[in-house]
Amino acid sequence: MSRAALLVLADGRFPAGGHAHSGGAEAAVRAGRITDAASLEAFCRGRLYTSGVVAACVAAAAALGVDPGELDRAADARTPSPALRVTARRLGRQLMRAARSTWPSAELDALAALFPKGAHQPVVLGLAARAAGLGALDAAHCSLYEGVSGPATAVVRLLGLDPFDATAVLARLSAEMDRVAQEAMETGERVVTDGVDVLPARSAPLLEIGAEAHAAWAVRLFAS
């Protein structure tokens, strides 16, 4: 693996459109559930162990070459909120565009042809990692980091939270992210032999409900 390629893919400035999304933080701020660094940390931790770990396992499995169509269907079944499915596909399409020009690959071309409106973002992320010469653990790390850094960055704008405090939240989560990434890689390896049913399905009720509420707002700062 190339450590530099991992940094390119994980960089918040990689032009994949993630900066326009808050990962549910905008809805949680509006509902008064995120008010400071401590509640941001609890929010990020909740995401990490629910939709975060599911996405990381999908990304790891895709990086290991599991059939992307099957992974995409498994992601659909684990994303009951239509608003979150739309977001996942939109982010997948944007990542696809960036990844194809950064690391041209026949596999990415084939996935783009199969899903013209976008595949679930973690599926694309896993194949982008493959195209960049990265492995399943790298794909899982990218996915998990993105899943918590998005809300942390968004809350700086939404609440005027001190950026140092927001970054400290991410630093405090890093040991857990390392552990979950390792588990996600191992799950990805099991998917190769046992199929997509072994993917985790952990859900966070308020992320689902909040996403639908947010999608219906007339005015919002973030797309999701």
């Binding site: 549910g24 949680a28 509902a31 559930r33 995120i34 509640s39 609890a42 929010f43 990020c44 931790r45 909740g46 995401r47 990490l48 162990y49 629910t50 770990v53 498994a74 079944a77 684990r78 009951p80 857990e176 049913d197 993917l199 985790p200 399905a201 952990r202 859900s203 966070a204 009720p205 308020l206 992320l207």
Partner: peptide, 20 residues
């Protein structure tokens, strides 16, 4: 549909937080 809810003492972190 495939979804799992995990809560209570010993459940993965954040289950009772703003996302859970």
């Amino acid at each position: 549909l495939d979804q799992e809810l995990a809560c209570g003492p010993g459940a993965p972190g954040g289950w009772d937080g703003p996302a859970g």
